[in-house]
Amino acid sequence: MIIIGLTGGIASGKSTVSAELRKMDVPVFDADAEARSAVNKGSEGLALVAQAFGSGYLTAAGELDRAKVSELVFHDKQALKTLENIIHKIVWQRAESFLQDCRDAKRQAAVLDVPLLIETGWHKQVDCVWLVAVSRRQQIERAMLRSGMTEEEVTARIEAQMPLAEKKQYADVVLDNSGSLEQTIAAVHKELAKLLGDGSER
């Protein structure tokens, strides 16, 4: 089984690529969704976060106070590292379980959709890295349109991430998402067929 690591910066169009892969019957692991559920109410992850930062970071309903935690880790790099260590460990365990299920199902390929694939070192655990890329201007405009953030807020997010040029050094495939949706989808089909051989798209 071939493991594809899919990554890309904010508003690069990574979700478009992962959605198309799902349509092609390729199983996709959504690390972002798993990271959110890792600290759901009553979870082991939430208990570990409360243990690390104190019960003051939980709401009255016993859920994670995401706004308060975000404020903390934005200003405290050590706190961010602690939070990431808790969440990444849980998410990776789930990713390993997902991959085993795919192997058991005799899948030809499986995808790990991970925004911080390279930063976490998880790119070493995949067979190839697919990087979705757009120009910085497009990234800013799309993020503003999607999230309602200001240009300054989007720029700050981009600056906090690994530069695209550096990410490209780790990529086996760069999917240019600066054109039309049809062009991006065609590129996804072409690259998957190349990877699996025999013109197969499944």
Score class of each variant (00 low, 15 high):
153 E>L: 02
18 S>H: 08
2 I>G: 07
179 G>R: 07
92 W>N: 14
69 V>C: 04
200 S>Q: 15
144 M>T: 08
164 L>K: 08
23 K>I: 09
28 V>S: 13
158 I>M: 08
105 A>N: 14
70 S>F: 00
151 E>C: 12
173 V>D: 02
31 A>L: 06
186 A>W: 01
47 A>N: 05
171 A>K: 02
159 E>T: 10
27 P>C: 01
161 Q>P: 04
45 G>H: 06
20 E>G: 02
149 M>T: 00
3 I>H: 07
168 K>S: 08
83 L>M: 09
135 S>V: 10
84 E>F: 04
125 Q>L: 15
176 D>V: 00
71 E>V: 03
121 G>V: 00
90 I>V: 09
106 K>A: 11
97 S>T: 14
158 I>G: 06
16 T>S: 13
107 R>G: 07
111 V>Q: 03
112 L>I: 11
147 S>T: 12
19 A>T: 12
66 R>A: 08
36 R>M: 08
14 K>I: 09
59 T>Y: 05
138 Q>P: 07
99 L>T: 09
135 S>C: 09
91 V>Y: 00
163 P>Y: 08
23 K>W: 02
41 K>Y: 03
44 E>K: 15
145 L>G: 00
89 K>Y: 13
177 N>M: 11
14 K>M: 10
159 E>Q: 12
58 L>K: 09
162 M>S: 08
49 V>D: 00
188 V>W: 05
32 D>I: 13
40 N>Q: 11
31 A>E: 00
116 L>S: 03
22 R>N: 07
189 H>I: 11
84 E>H: 08
140 I>V: 15
157 R>A: 00
130 W>I: 01
19 A>V: 00
34 E>W: 06
173 V>F: 03
60 A>K: 13
162 M>W: 12
29 F>H: 06
176 D>N: 11
4 I>E: 08
34 E>A: 15
45 G>Q: 08
150 T>F: 04
53 F>Q: 04
128 C>E: 13
200 S>I: 14
29 F>A: 05
48 L>C: 07
147 S>Q: 06
149 M>Q: 12
44 E>L: 15
102 C>R: 12
118 I>L: 15
155 T>R: 15
33 A>E: 12
189 H>Y: 05
32 D>P: 05
21 L>Y: 11
187 A>V: 05
149 M>W: 13
